[in-house]
């Protein structure tokens, strides 16, 4: 289980750390298990503390045009692009 989740989260976990991590995670999951005691029938999920109309922007080009800033912190760049190890599709 931990290996699969770590794979999904793209986090490398060394084999020797797996058992301890699995124990910690299952302790946490055991703790949150209490939620199942709560009767939540017909309770609407709460996704944000703010209840208001979504605010929008107008369709105007107001941003962009600074590729140097966008690329400034890149670990590897080439010819105006970000560069990563070759991806095989």
């Amino acid at each position: 289980m931990v290996r699969r989740i770590a794979g999904l989260a793209r986090i490398q976990v060394d084999d020797d750390k797996l058992p301890a991590l699995a124990k910690e995670l299952s302790a946490i999951l055991g703790f949150v298990e209490q939620l199942s005691e709560v009767d939540t029938e017909n309770v609407k999920p709460y996704t944000s503390p703010v209840e208001m109309q979504i605010k929008a922007r107008a369709d105007a080009v107001t941003d962009g045009g600074y590729p140097e800033d966008i690329l400034a912190n890149a670990p590897e760049k080439d010819d105006g692009y970000f560069a990563v190890p070759k991806v095989v599709e």
């Binding site: 949150v32 939620l35 199942s36 709560v38 939540t40 309770v43 609407k44 999920p45 709460y46 996704t47």
Partner: peptide, 11 residues
């Protein structure tokens, strides 16, 4: 887990 937690959050 997640949905349940959001419901409890409303309560």
């Amino acid at each position: 887990y997640y949905l349940k937690a959001l419901q409890v959050r409303r309560l």
